[in-house]
């Protein structure tokens, strides 16, 4: 390799602050939605949009931990399903149950993440396969638990996080609790990824696992932690989604791929080493905004799937192209 392949001005250009294209994309999409549906510009419009996107946004930010560490977590959708089904089965309409059910669900989530991480780190099962197996298993568990049809209801105390709006607030008039959750958990996940030693180790492991081990990074612990974070955010996302949408047997299905898509739209590097929590949340907003647009255009669910698939392929292809152009 010679100096010609790393020309100076190109290097200088890179050090200028570069805005992630995802933010431009989100702005453009929102603008398009407002043009098509001016009511979206009202607080009820955009707040409901944010409320709808919260579960996916938190989930994506958590899944990003695994992606940055160089893996995939396909089990998150099934964890959401298990959370919703399990909570409804345990709650038996007792409003006070929420206070122990949510911690219990978080513990179950942590155990699932731990198992994912251990299987990937020590049994050396590729994460795609390990978490796919976990996804099938958990869907089965949820199905058995519910007996095949949703029974029981989620008490209002549980649904508070996903459904309740704080009203009579000046300027914005209403504020969904879900949006507060998004800000709180988004901030925590941002801090963990971008402001701690753990976050930097996560990036290093995803960038070059062998080098990370030789540099003293506790590679296994870091990877396992990433799966635990991912599983915990899936439980949180499940609580919020269940709160908003109620109980159904396949409530979380498809979320695992939406989360990966959101991260990729946000510029995360599949196979690890690069990713941003704010950009991933913006990626989730962009994905939801695209779905909203498709709805406004009167296009149905199948189209949604086609579009999501194409976005995933397109975003990865675009990122790969950019990487190549950057000379790697």
């Amino acid at each position: 390799m010679s100096a010609q392949s790393l020309p100076r001005p190109a290097a200088a250009k890179r050090s200028l602050p570069k805005i992630n294209p995802v933010y431009v994309l989100v702005a453009a999409l929102i603008l398009a939605i407002i043009v098509m549906n001016p009511a979206f510009g009202e607080p009820t419009g955009y707040m409901n949009f944010l409320k709808r996107v919260t579960a996916l946004a938190i989930l994506s930010a958590g899944a990003l931990y695994v992606i940055v560490s160089g893996g995939f977590d396909l089990s998150v959708g099934s964890i959401m399903t298990l959370t919703v089904i399990g909570s409804s089965m345990l709650a038996s309409n007792d409003p006070n149950s929420t206070y122990w059910i949510i911690p219990l669900m978080l513990c179950i989530g942590a155990v699932i993440g731990l198992i994912n991480g251990l299987v990937v780190s020590y049994l050396k099962v590729p994460s795609l396969i390990a978490t796919l197996g976990m996804m099938i298993t958990l869907n089965g568990v949820a199905f058995m638990w519910s007996g095949g049809a949703p029974r029981g209801y989620l008490p209002d105390t549980f649904r508070f996080f996903g459904r309740y709006n704080i009203t009579d607030i000046p300027v914005i008039t209403l504020l969904p609790v879900a949006v507060i959750c998004l800000v709180v958990f988004g901030t925590i996940l941002w801090w963990g990824m971008h402001r701690t030693n753990f976050g930097r180790m996560l990036h290093a492991v995803g960038d070059n696992q062998q080098a990370a081990r030789l540099a003293g990074v506790p590679v296994e612990r870091v990877r396992i932690s990433a799966f635990v974070v991912s599983a915990l955010t899936a439980v949180l996302a499940g609580v919020i989604l269940g709160g908003r949408a109620g109980v159904s047997v396949d409530i979380g299905s498809g979320f695992e791929l939406q989360a990966i898509t959101a991260a990729v739209i946000g510029g995360a590097q599949l196979l690890g080493g690069r990713g941003s929590v704010p950009a991933t949340i913006a990626g989730a907003l962009a994905l939801e905004a695209i779905f909203t647009l498709l709805n406004l255009l009167g296009l149905a669910q199948p189209v949604r799937l086609v579009v999501q698939g194409l976005i995933l392929i397109g975003a990865v292809a675009f990122a790969t192209y950019q990487r190549k152009r950057a000379g790697r």
Binding site: M201, N208, A212
Partner: peptide, 22 residues
């Protein structure tokens, strides 16, 4: 293959081992 984190900054490359033990 064994030492560089090509996508991370020069400084992050330098800091990594110290961070791993903090």
């Amino acid at each position: 293959a064994q030492a560089l984190f090509l996508m991370q900054s020069v400084r992050d490359n330098g800091m990594l081992t110290a961070r791993s033990f903090a």
